[in-house]
Computed example of a mutant assay.
Amino acid sequence: VGLLPTYDQIGLWAPALLVLCRLVQGFAVAGEISGASSMILEHAPFGRRGFFASFTLQGVQAGQILAAAVFLPLAHYMPTDQFNSWGWRVPFILSFIVIIIGWIIRREVDETPAFTQEGAAKPRSPVTEAFKNHGPDMLRVVLMSLMNVIPVVATIFGAAYAVQPAYGIGFHKDVYLWIPVLGNILAVLVIPIVGNLSDKIGRRPPMIVGSVLAGLLAFGYLYAISIGSVPLAIVMSLLMWGIVYQGYNAVFPSFYPELFPTRTRVSAMAISQNVGTAITAMLPAVFAAVAPPGSTNIWMTVGALAFGITVISAVACFTARETYRLAMNDLGKPEAAPVPEGEYMRLRDEALAQAARA
């Protein structure tokens, strides 16, 4: 992206290439979240999977902080014409460092014992098998993934509502840019705590409570914007997105993979999670349609929609089976029993199959 030619240089090819780059990034991230979550989960010791798998999303939030740490100073201190001309390219070009780090990691990392043990048993078509045998759980993941409505409200519609002149609120853009930065900093601290909690009380409680409370806080956040209170909007955003939403964000990297066996885990999670995420990507247009500039009670209308969607996610989570201690209990083994490396995931997959047949 940083090296793309401009519209003046190649015309319509410039935006076309930009869209292509974004599509490549989208497909990559879509597979990376599920693949990274599954790999961490299958390497993690029994009873600590929620804690270790939460690092996946902690890394996402930390990466966004690093991106902002590069982008915001450039945007603030560079003259506007220079930033618009070439300064915006600097953060993208610096990402070459990430390419090198990622390449080194992928050279050194080993496949998980659970995946290696599949051997010849790996399905020829994981996608087909996922839809055939795990359709109900994939639908649950789609509905639970609608929880992405919260970051949509916080950073996309909320930003438009607060900043765009048509809405008449008048927040300054520089002030509002700090809301996602502060939210991500708080999330980095909260995520491992919630992930660890899910190893003790289960995956569903933090996800359900986080979904419902985040939906309720959406009312307060949008109301704070509607009355033009920057401090209250920041506080409500930090509560809604930086803390409560992490009840979902920290746990789904362990909960989603645990719903599926090794044979189809990455495919089933990636497809269903990204279908739900794609649906939420359309929500800014829906919010703008039902609450356009000039309409009344915008905060109430959008807040009600956001809350309704989070309730759907919470209900879907409630109908899912608890997974954090499934394998050992279902197979009649004490939770503290020593399990050889790689053996745990095989036993857990057998338990999942037995539960599905039941």
Rank of each mutant, 00 (worst) to 15 (best):
M282S: 15
P334A: 10
F252M: 14
E335L: 11
T323C: 12
Y344W: 05
V251Q: 05
A250L: 09
S267I: 03
V302P: 00
I312Q: 12
P334W: 02
I309P: 00
S272Y: 01
A291N: 06
T296V: 10
S254Y: 02
A291R: 01
M269T: 11
P261F: 05
Y344Q: 08
T280E: 10
V290C: 07
V311G: 07
F255G: 05
T301Y: 02
E343W: 06
T319E: 08
A291P: 05
D330L: 05
E322P: 07
P253W: 03
P292M: 10
F307I: 06
Y256T: 02
I298T: 15
D330S: 10
T277S: 13
P261C: 09
M328P: 00
P292G: 09
P284N: 10
A337N: 08
P261D: 11
T319D: 08
P257I: 01
E343K: 12
A289Y: 12
V339Q: 15
R325H: 15
V290W: 02
L326F: 10
T280M: 14
T262A: 12
S295T: 11
F260Y: 05
F307P: 00
P340G: 02
A285E: 12
T277D: 12
L305M: 13
L305Q: 06
T264D: 03
F287W: 13
A268Y: 01
V302T: 04
F260W: 02
T264K: 00
P340W: 05
A281P: 06
P257L: 04
P293T: 09
L331T: 14
L259P: 00
I279Q: 13
F252P: 01
E343T: 02
A285M: 15
I271A: 06
V311T: 08
A337M: 13
Y324T: 13
A288H: 03
P292E: 01
P284T: 08
C317D: 08
Q273G: 05
E258M: 02
